[in-house]
Design a protein around this nucleic acid. Structure first.
Lengths: 205, 205
DNA sequence: CGTACTTTTGAATCGCATCAAATCTGGTGG
DNA sequence: CCACCAGATTTGATGCGATTCAAAAGTACG
């Protein structure tokens, strides 16, 4: 028996029954693109496992990573948009849930308390994005990494399940620079690497 | 008679009557701080004129500019927060409107169509922030500037009412670097400076 | 065992930050 | 009107840190 938790608890608590019924499980295959820039939005996704990267190809042709999502909503901002504003690229196998945007709009209009929860979710996203902007405003790879650990980490410990290389693109630095920064911070006894996690020495655990 | 447009049209179209009645005009004085990090949120603001900068003082003590607002909402993400996540510093005299958060929450719960409009506003903000992250991920001052003009500008023309210096902090580069980048782009016939605006030569106007 | 990937280290180069200083600007008061 | 000041603008020189190119070593997986 495949234990397929098509809809995780986070969604059960947020969405009304009608939407839960309309939710469809979507398998994520590395390399696949869930949606493309400029496409008309039809679904919103919730990543249960695996990884999706929102990326946008600039005029110069180089792809820029807007966001990595390992657990949470993707394309939630396309609710009333005429088109997706970025690509949804799967970078690690896993599972997601697709929600039809039409149904979502209808339920938001029908259930005020759901709309309020949705607004709360968006507020959280806005704050997270502000944090990312703040992080990217920092000079120095080390500072960015420490900021990430303090901001997104759990009690001074940041999970890095997919290696430092993918983390480097999120911090908008070369992977070499990140490796060197981590090594330096370890020498300085500021952080400790524990396999799939980086932790601050002070505070936290 | 002072023509005091306490509530601009953008707000009239968005907010229900009850909130418009609860809105209070707030004069903005340069140097003043509308709210402080970690304070309990009581109001949300809408900038009519002047400028407010959202800034956060990092652990290292250096202030980081999260956002400059010359027209639009400020602190909209603090709706259900226990505290503001940044300071609201006035950087240019002007006027704003203050909305009590309590009343806002109540109206959102009471009027689904208002909640939907609010969600639309938040979606726009999320996209704008993603754009800013994308911009900050770019290497090179010139690239960031061009991205800003293309993204936030009006038909390839970006208003710079407060000089390039404040723009530099928004792009997270030194003002010297920005001045040099602008000069270079002008030499290369890529942009034109027109007093308070920078415009692309190709496209746009 | 081989392939593909990440991790790691090295060396050269380039862009930006930084410090410094000169010029220009608008505004204020004499 | 002019002197003067505060701020923005501009140019120059220097150093550091990150990028880049390169290559080796480690690791996971079929």
């Amino acid at each position: 028996m495949r234990s397929a938790p098509a809809v995780p608890n986070a969604l059960r608590n947020l969405l009304p029954p009608v939407l839960l019924a309309a939710a469809a499980a979507v398998p994520l295959r590395k390399g696949e693109r869930l949606f493309l820039q400029r496409q008309r939005p039809r679904h919103m996704y919730f990543v249960v496992s695996g990884e999706i990267v929102l990326e946008r190809s600039g005029a110069s042709g180089n792809a820029v990573v807007l966001q990595r999502v390992r657990h949470g909503f993707v394309a939630e901002a396309s609710l009333h948009s005429a088109s997706y504003h970025c690509d949804g690229l799967v970078t690690a196998d896993g599972d997601a849930v697709a929600l039809p945007l039409e149904a979502l709009t209808g339920e938001l209009a029908r259930h005020p308390e759901f709309a309020l929860r949705w607004i709360g979710m968006l507020n959280q996203e806005v704050r997270r994005l502000r944090g990312q902007c703040e992080r990217l405003s920092l000079r120095g790879v080390g500072e960015r990494l420490l900021h990430l650990i303090e901001t997104e980490g759990d009690h001074g410990s940041l999970a890095v399940p997919h290696g430092l290389k993918s983390l480097a693109t999120e911090l908008a630095v070369s992977h070499e620079a990140l490796y060197r920064a981590v090594a330096t911070l370890e020498d300085e006894k500021v952080v400790v690497r524990d396999g799939g996690a980086i932790s601050l020495r002070r505070a936290g655990s």
